[in-house]
Design a protein around this nucleic acid. Sequence first.
DNA 1: CGTTGTTGCGCAAGCGTTTGCGTTCAGATT
DNA 2: AATCTGAACGCAAACGCTTGCGCAACAACG
Lengths: 340, 340
Amino acid sequence: MTASINDVARAAGVSASTVSRALRGRPGVSDEVRDKITAVAAQLGYTASRSAASLASGRTYTIGVLVPYVGRWFFGTVLDAAERVFSAAGYDVLLYNLGSPEIRKRFFTRLPVRKRVDAVLSLLIPDEEESAALRSLGVPLATTVGGARPGFTVVGIDDRAGTESAVRHLVNLGHRRIGMISGASGPLHWTTPIERRNAYLDVLADAGIEHDPALEADGDYTVEGGERAMTELLAASRPPTAVYAQSDEMAMGALRALRRHRLRVPEDVSVVGFDDHELADVVGLTTVAQPVADQGAEAARLLLRQLDEPGAEPPTEQVQMPIRLVLRETTAPPRPRGPQ
Amino acid sequence: MTASINDVARAAGVSASTVSRALRGRPGVSDEVRDKITAVAAQLGYTASRSAASLASGRTYTIGVLVPYVGRWFFGTVLDAAERVFSAAGYDVLLYNLGSPEIRKRFFTRLPVRKRVDAVLSLLIPDEEESAALRSLGVPLATTVGGARPGFTVVGIDDRAGTESAVRHLVNLGHRRIGMISGASGPLHWTTPIERRNAYLDVLADAGIEHDPALEADGDYTVEGGERAMTELLAASRPPTAVYAQSDEMAMGALRALRRHRLRVPEDVSVVGFDDHELADVVGLTTVAQPVADQGAEAARLLLRQLDEPGAEPPTEQVQMPIRLVLRETTAPPRPRGPQ
DNA sequence: CGTTGTTGCGCAAGCGTTTGCGTTCAGATT
DNA sequence: AATCTGAACGCAAACGCTTGCGCAACAACG
């Protein structure tokens, strides 16, 4: 049996309440008694039971983090950064990996985080119902992915500006047949793919390029999906000379497809991605960089701030982080062609 | 205020103990009463307070997972798989990201998981002291990384066999100057880099190849480290014609270095990695595949089993998962050279 | 010297569950 | 018909902490 607060109290010759106050830095304890208690606690290897503490105080000092897929680079990175901020502030992180629809559904109906967390950071896009379920927890909520809902603090990026810089870059290089690999098959209320698509269309229109629906394909935000999508695009009667992929992972899938088709990048086809994935540099991928870790850290910070000052601060807050185009080796002017 | 067990009891016209038994599927409750309680609980949106439950029962239904760096592919993937197994069994996951030495130290001295978790899955290699601290928790322990310590259930792979298949492959292709990028700068008690190095040396010896210390470099298990290491190897008076990297991330760094030096892969230099990283396929990397997700899932399962049957089962268990060499496009015979 | 504050500490009432034990009652057993 | 046996349920005592309140002791004040 590990030591309880009473063991410490007895050993230090004080009451349990004094131990509690002393160890948590509360006032009402003289310095000498506090030192004594600290020493005794250390010697006994005492750690307060979180269960008992939160039962008594109502605070759990735990944050729930909802992730669709921890293994994916983007989410792993956000989670990593957020966890650091939380743990530095003395909060623990409860991780919920809500990949499959069944698991996700079960989570939202049973809501196991109820009474278990002081706040929730959701890295997935809740639909209307799920969003309401989370709000019913009565704790601060935040997210780092597009598709903000009322009650959520959201930190994100300017998807439109990012896309514009990517597609304009292709236009400026001289490309006219510019394809897009999107992630449209996600949840309908997820705004990111939509924003990015709209920006893509706008840039084309601005440049006086007619939009060809055959140059759009769905890549599901995965490497495999990106490969499929690129294969699809290559099958078009007039394939693109450049491709904008809405994520680096899809862009990498596209690169693989191109290699399989014995097409050279960027000589035959230019590719630009979005994210600045850890390995984008390795494959020389031109991409729109977004500060992924920073977003996680910032979201965590905002959540902590709401916990500190439980006043009537704005429950919803919007933060936009900077993006920038990173030029590498997968984009170049189109090679001169015969008559179009 | 959310509903408490007493609210449910009152609404259902029974006692709190009956509610508890009914909701947790314990015997001693008639079917009709159980149904009634279930209905009432659902209607009130009742969820038992985990704090109160674990305080009373002593079980937390929570697993602590210790990770050096969540954002890294290997750890993210293991964590992902393990979390699925845990949550399916009704356990929550408390995540501790112990990247920096200070955080790590603080964790092991304060041991915040004490009384908070029913078991610990450690994805980092504890030293003797840390290992003892974990054992003092008195809960089942498991790990998926080499360097087993007493008290830990470990599921891993045969590092020796994996390395052998990789290096033999290079030998069979005709390479004689085979470099290695290792991750030796890790903690000394971490066996993986050592095992892999020994296997590398053995294969060379078997093939009658004299070992050249100038062909070994430390890559720190990161992309950047791999790049540095490769650059180092290329600076040798007689650079290698093939390189075995102890991880895919380092191999990718090596690829980048080679590209920067305008060397072609595999024509000028062959590269083989280890892990079968998600994106190894994208860059066409020949590598030793290990079932990363499976290891996480299996470790989780073993932990759960120990929790189910708290008898005197062997506290330490060793499981080895299969590995296999995946041939892709970064390895080929050395190009014919002039007189050696 | 009484009065009023302060400071430092103990008391005890919770917090919301779980669980051993006791009670009731219907049906089976002699 | 008397007794026994389970099954179904309630009682109440934990579980280990937090925190409002009360009460000394002592300092400072008039």
